[in-house]
Design a binder for these strands. Structure first.
Lengths: 266, 266
DNA sequence: CGTTGGGTTGAACCCACTCAATACGCGTGG
DNA sequence: CCACGCGTATTGAGTGGGTTCAACCCAACG
């Protein structure tokens, strides 16, 4: 089994550590290498288990953990499985905005509202721990580390989302799919799971929605990646994907980056 | 002067309150109407001024408030002006990921890291208040409301970013520009500033980067919006834009929404 | 003056979308 | 067992919106 060391935690395009030089030759220190202790996800689970009351719930694929409009009074943290967070618009459009794995917090984007502003759906048999938000706040003086964990998680989500914007704007469809697979694999690796053979529990429609493209484009991108040997399909169901070398996905993404636009900064 | 009542706070595409019915006829309560007290931005400034030590700094357009790699030890909050947050990639690509106004927190996406992971640049003469992060954490027991303010701000940023993803994926270039203007106007309105005549302190390149399109497309979109009467240009410098009716921008956006994709949810 | 940076506009191209046909996997029921 | 339907996935052909490349305008500035 292959494990990325010093890997990024998130299922998101942290395409490259922000090292090296920018266009204006200003040295950008590698913030990733220094920060973000590996396996941050363990911390939250351990802290909660030790210090806070919480309720466990086991859900199966397709079950809703939270629906838009539900009153917000607790945060969730995943102890097992995979969930998606879906934003809904009034006109029926929907957007998968986040995929989360074991140890991830869920519902952080709803803390400003008295009600849930997104759907949270299990994509797999999952175990969810629910923590009452008021209780969490009260226990801050007693367990200061808890606050750091929550802040860290929110902060990670934010910068993760923002890296997606960069990818969305600058990468081709093929590169986005490749990066999607890479980041999925990275998330698995960070949790000590095997990354050479992953099973996507998402339809092409879901992947396309998440990546901002149509199912046809997703399908073609997969085919092209397979044709070029970066991935290959296991058995007949085309959701099992073998990734011989995860690093080659990253190389592919970096290779297809369009020439950087000229300087914006002043 | 025109003020949107029950308006959204953010410079971001909260294109529509999540009311009405989803594709599967599931009633989605209007979370916006209930939550998010108007002028949330006042709270943070007031709380800090009253309870926390902070340092003031005045910067001018183009000045960097924070650079990638700077050690992270304090959060900022804007008391005046406008700033942009820029994410940098190793290959020189850069992406404006956030625009912030008076009362907005800055640096929330860097709390998980010991160093800043983005540049923060003033776009205007601005006054920044800096709050030591450790001090902030220590004062949580004494001023509980402070934590709620920070959490609210982070949560807002998250859901704001996520609404952008929906827009990015589903709106045409013209609609994105229109929505950009609408949300900018909404931010001004929420701060009791006039919205019928706004001055963008951004080049076309910056707008294009922020919206994920080229400067030519931005320029053409502006021209088309002007031709259709939704906006008009003041004087010669084409950065001063008159918006006769802000609501018509929203109508335009909603009119050009492509037919929603079929159901993803199970 | 010429230069430089920002902005607009035109023409050609190309990637991703749309429309459409086909294939596959799977459960259901004759 | 095969037939059938259904949801999902793949692939092809054609279209179009946004990009690319290019020329040009305009204001500021030395």
């Amino acid at each position: 089994m292959e494990v990325l060391n010093r890997s990024d935690v998130s299922i998101a395009p942290s395409i490259m550590a922000r090292a090296a030089l920018a266009h204006d030759a200003r040295p950008l220190p590698d913030v990733r290498a220094v920060g973000a202790p590996p396996q941050r996800w363990r911390e939250s689970l351990a802290l909660i288990e030790r210090h806070l009351p919480f309720s466990r719930r086991t859900v199966r694929a397709g079950d809703a953990i939270q629906r838009v409009g539900d009153p917000f009074n607790c945060l969730h943290i995943l102890n097992l499985g995979t969930v998606k967070t879906v934003n809904l618009a009034a006109d029926g459009r929907e957007q998968i905005v986040s995929l989360n794995f074991k140890g991830d917090w869920v519902g952080l984007d709803c803390m400003a509202s008295p009600r849930w502003v997104c759907d949270v759906i299990a994509m797999d048999t999952s175990e969810v721990w629910s923590i009452d938000y008021a209780t969490l706040l009260q226990s801050v003086p007693r367990v200061p580390a808890l606050l750091q964990a929550v802040h860290g998680a929110m902060s990670c989500q934010l910068s993760r989302d923002r890296e997606w914007r960069l990818a969305q704007g600058t990468l081709s469809a093929d590169a986005r799919v490749a990066d999607f697979l890479r980041s999925w694999a990275a998330s698995l690796a960070e949790r000590d799971l095997r990354t050479d053979q992953i099973t996507l529990r998402m339809t092409r429609a879901e992947i396309g929605n998440y990546l901002g493209m149509t199912i046809e484009t997703v399908s073609r991108a997969f085919s092209r990646l397979a044709r070029s040997g970066l991935i290959s399909f296991e058995d007949k169901g085309r959701r099992n994907i073998a990734i011989p070398r995860v690093e080659s996905l990253l190389e592919f993404v970096q290779r297809t980056v369009r020439t950087p636009s000229p300087a914006l900064l002043q």
